[in-house]
Deep mutational scan, measured.
Amino acid sequence: TSIVNVSSSLNVRSSASTSSKVIGSLSGNTKVTIVGEEGAFYKIEYKGSHGYVAKEYI
C-alpha cells in the first residue's frame, strides 16, 4: 500500500500514457495498492479493476 502525494487530485488513467482516457481521480493522502508498473506509471487497484497513475505522485 502506498499513499497519493498531491495537494489537489491525481488522475487515474485507463493505460500508462498521459494521453490515455481519465477514468477517475484520487485525492491526496489516499491509500492505493500497486499491482505493477509500466514506464513512468504504476498500475493500481481501482474500483474493482485497474488504473494507472504517474509514479512521481505516489
Score class of each variant (00 low, 15 high):
Phe41His: 03
Ser27Thr: 11
Arg13Leu: 15
Tyr46Cys: 04
Arg13Asp: 02
Ser27His: 10
Asn29Gly: 15
Ser14Met: 13
Ser7Phe: 09
Asn29Ala: 08
Val22Lys: 05
Tyr42Phe: 10
Ile3His: 10
Asn11Pro: 15
Thr1Ile: 13
Ser14Val: 13
Val12Gly: 00
Ser17Glu: 07
Ser17Val: 05
Val22His: 04
Asn29Gln: 10
Val22Asp: 03
Ser19Pro: 05
Tyr52Ser: 00
Ser9Trp: 13
Val35Thr: 06
Gly36Asn: 05
Gly51Ile: 01
Glu56Thr: 08
Ser8Gln: 12
Ser17Asn: 10
Asn11Ser: 13
Ser20Arg: 02
Ala16Leu: 03
Thr1Arg: 04
Val6His: 10
Ser7Gln: 13
Glu38Gln: 07
Gly48Trp: 04
Lys43Met: 09
Ser49His: 09
Gly28Pro: 15
Ile23Cys: 05
Leu10Pro: 07
Ser15Trp: 07
Tyr46Ala: 00
Ser27Ile: 10
Gly51Lys: 01
Ala54Ser: 09
Gly28Arg: 13
Val4Leu: 10
Asn29Ser: 09
Val53Thr: 01
Tyr52Lys: 00
Gly24Gln: 02
Ser9Arg: 14
His50Arg: 04
Val22Gln: 04
Ser8Pro: 09
Ser25Lys: 14
Lys31Trp: 13
Lys43Gln: 06
Ser25Val: 15
Ile34Gln: 01
Ile23Thr: 03
Thr18Glu: 14
His50Glu: 06
Ser25Ile: 15
Leu26Ile: 14
Lys43Arg: 09
Ser49Arg: 10
Ser25His: 14
Val6Asp: 07
Ile3Asp: 06
Lys47Asp: 09
Glu45Phe: 09
Ala16Ile: 04
Thr30His: 08
Leu10Phe: 11
Arg13Asn: 10
Leu26Pro: 00
Ser9Leu: 11
Asn5Gly: 10
Ser17His: 10
Val6Met: 10
Asn29Lys: 09
Gly51Cys: 03
Ser2Gln: 11
Val32Pro: 04
Gly36Lys: 04
Phe41Tyr: 08
Ile34Gly: 00
Ser7Cys: 15
Val35Gln: 05
Val22Ser: 06
Thr18Val: 11
Lys55Ile: 06
Ser2Glu: 07
Gly48Val: 03
Val32Met: 06
Gly28Cys: 13
Ala16Met: 04
Asn29Tyr: 13
Tyr42Leu: 05
Tyr42Lys: 01
Val22Leu: 07
Gly51Gln: 01
Lys47Gln: 12
Leu10Gln: 05
Ser7Ile: 12
Gly51Thr: 01
Arg13Ala: 05
Gly24Lys: 02
Lys55Asp: 01
Ser7Tyr: 07
Ala16Trp: 04
Ile44Phe: 06
Asn11Trp: 15
Ser17Asp: 12
Val6Gly: 11
Phe41Ser: 02
Tyr46His: 04
Asn11Ile: 15
Ala54Asp: 10
Gly39Lys: 05
Leu26Tyr: 03
Ser14Thr: 08
Asn5Ile: 15
Thr33Trp: 10
Asn11Gly: 07
Ala54Thr: 07
Thr30Ala: 12
Glu38Arg: 05
Ser2Gly: 15
Ser8Tyr: 12
Ile58Asp: 03
Thr18Pro: 14
Ser9Thr: 13
Lys47Ile: 05
Ser14Asn: 10
Ser17Cys: 08
Tyr52Glu: 00
Glu37Asn: 05
Gly39Thr: 03
Ser8Asp: 12
Ser2Tyr: 11
Val12Ser: 02
Asn29Leu: 11
Tyr52Thr: 00
Ser19Trp: 07
Ser17Ile: 06
Thr1Tyr: 07
His50Asn: 06
Ile3Asn: 07
Ser25Thr: 15
Lys47His: 10
Leu10Arg: 05
Thr1Met: 12
Thr33Phe: 10
Ser20Ile: 01
Gly39Ala: 05
Ile3Lys: 07
Ser7Val: 12
Glu37Asp: 06
Ser14Glu: 15
Glu38Cys: 12
Val53Gly: 02
Lys31Arg: 13
Tyr52Met: 00
Ser8Asn: 11
Lys21Thr: 12
Tyr46Ser: 00
Glu38Trp: 06
Lys31Tyr: 12
Gly36Thr: 04
Asn29Val: 08
Tyr46Ile: 03
Lys21Leu: 10
Ser7Asp: 10
Lys43Glu: 04
Gly48Pro: 03
Phe41Lys: 00
Ile3Ala: 09
Ser14Cys: 13
Val32Glu: 00
Val4His: 08
Asn11Thr: 14
Lys47Pro: 02
Gly39Leu: 05
Ile3Met: 12
Ile3Gly: 10
Ser7Glu: 11
Ser27Ala: 14
Gly51Met: 02
Lys47Thr: 04
Val32Asp: 00
Ser17Lys: 06
Gly48Met: 05
Lys55Trp: 03
Leu26Val: 08
Gly39Tyr: 04
Glu45Cys: 12
Ala40His: 10
Ile44Leu: 02
Ser19Met: 09
Lys55Glu: 01
Ser17Ala: 07
Ser27Asn: 11
Val4Phe: 06
Val35Tyr: 05
Val12Cys: 03
Ser2His: 15
Ser19Ile: 08
Ser20Pro: 01
Thr30Leu: 06
Val22Tyr: 06
Ser19Tyr: 09
Tyr52Val: 00
Tyr42Ser: 01
Gly28Trp: 12
Ile23Met: 07
Glu56Ser: 08
Ser14Tyr: 11
Val12His: 02
Ile23Val: 07
Val53Gln: 00
Glu38Asp: 09
Ser25Asp: 06
Lys43Thr: 03
Leu26Met: 06
Val4Thr: 09
Ser14Pro: 04
Tyr52Cys: 01
Val4Ala: 10
Asn11Leu: 15
Val22Pro: 05
Tyr57Val: 08
Gly36Arg: 03
Ala16Thr: 05
Thr30Lys: 06
Tyr57Ser: 12
Ile58Lys: 04
Ser9Cys: 15
Tyr52Ile: 01
Ser15His: 14
Ser7Pro: 10
Glu37Gly: 04
Gly36Asp: 06
Val6Phe: 06
Leu10Thr: 14
Glu56Val: 11
Val4Cys: 14
Lys21Glu: 13
Ile23Tyr: 02
Thr1Lys: 06
Thr1Gln: 12
Ser49Pro: 01
Glu56Ala: 11
Ser14Gln: 15
Ser8Ala: 12
Thr30Gln: 12
Ser2Asn: 10
Thr30Met: 11
Ala54Ile: 10
Ala54Lys: 13
Tyr52Ala: 01
Ala16His: 04
Ser19Gln: 11
Tyr46Leu: 03
Thr1Val: 14
Gly24Asp: 03
Glu38Asn: 06
Ile34Thr: 02
Gly36Ile: 02
Val32Thr: 03
Asn11Phe: 13
Ile34Arg: 01
Ser7Leu: 11
Ala54Gly: 10
Asn5Pro: 08
Ile3Leu: 10
Ser2Cys: 15
Gly48Ser: 07
Ile3Glu: 08
Glu38Lys: 06
His50Thr: 09
His50Ala: 06
Ala54Arg: 13
Glu38Val: 09
Ser9Lys: 13
Val32His: 02
Val6Trp: 06
Thr33Gly: 05
Ser15Tyr: 08
Thr18Ile: 13
Val6Leu: 11
Ile58Ala: 04
Val53Glu: 00
Glu45Lys: 09
Ser2Lys: 08
Phe41Met: 03
Ala40Arg: 08
Arg13Lys: 06
Asn5Arg: 06
His50Leu: 09
Ile58Leu: 11
Val35Ala: 04
Phe41Gly: 00
Thr1Trp: 07
Thr18Leu: 15
Ser25Met: 14
Lys21Ile: 10
Lys47Arg: 10
Ser9Val: 14
Ser15Ile: 05
Val22Met: 05
Ile23Ala: 02
Val53Arg: 00
Thr33Lys: 11
Lys21Tyr: 08
Lys43Gly: 01
Ser15Gly: 12
Ala40Phe: 07
Ile23Trp: 02
Ser49Val: 10
Ala16Gly: 05
Ser17Tyr: 08
Ser25Pro: 04
Ser20Trp: 04
Ile44Met: 01
Glu56Asp: 09
Val4Ile: 11
Ser14Leu: 11
Asn5Ser: 12
Ile23Gly: 00
Asn11Tyr: 13
Gly24Arg: 01
Ala54Trp: 10
Gly36His: 04
Ile23Pro: 01
Arg13Ser: 06
Tyr52Arg: 00
Thr30Arg: 06
Tyr57Leu: 10
Ser14Ala: 15
Tyr57Lys: 08
Asn5Val: 14
Ser20Gln: 02
Gly36Tyr: 03
Ser20Tyr: 06
Thr33Met: 09
Val6Glu: 08
Glu38Phe: 07
Ser49Gln: 10
Val6Pro: 09
Gly51Asn: 02
Lys31Thr: 13
Glu56Met: 11
Val22Cys: 08
Ser8Arg: 10
Val22Gly: 02
Gly24Cys: 06
Asn11Arg: 11
Lys43Cys: 09
His50Val: 13
Thr1Asp: 12
Glu38Ile: 07
